[in-house]
């Protein structure tokens, strides 16, 4: 089990979550395409696969088979740990 805080401590993994929040249920190939095309990240598929494993281990990404392809979904539930620990407050201007 990887801790949520460690999983988020990496810009590539944050970009993967950004792309999944734009549209959920993407394949590894699609995530590789987006990281290259939109973010100029030239990582190998193996490296991106390992980042996805870290996110899955933290419970932030779920992989589901739809037909024969594996699609990745962003699960925001573990993020509640952050606000549970440090509740956010609306900042009121003086």
């Amino acid at each position: 089990m990887v801790d949520v805080f460690r999983a988020l401590d990496d810009e590539t993994r944050r970009l993967i979550l950004d792309e999944l929040s734009v549209r959920d249920g993407r394949t590894l190939f699609e995530i590789c395409t987006l990281l290259l095309a939109r973010h100029g990240r030239t990582l190998t598929r193996q490296a991106i696969s390992q980042h996805l494993e870290v996110l899955q281990s933290a419970g932030l990404v779920r992989a589901e088979r739809r037909g024969r392809a594996k699609h990745h979904y962003f699960d925001t539930a573990p993020l509640a740990q952050i606000t549970a620990r440090w509740p956010t407050t609306e900042r009121t201007d003086p």
Binding site: T27, E30, L36
Partner: peptide, 25 residues
């Protein structure tokens, strides 16, 4: 036809990925 990836603008091109129902994308 089922697409595993909808049309996506990748800068120099637009791409999409479909399932050919014969075992390939």
């Amino acid at each position: 036809v089922v697409f595993t990836q909808p049309p996506t603008d990748v800068g120099m091109a637009v791409v999409a990925v479909l399932d050919d129902t014969c075992g390939n994308l």
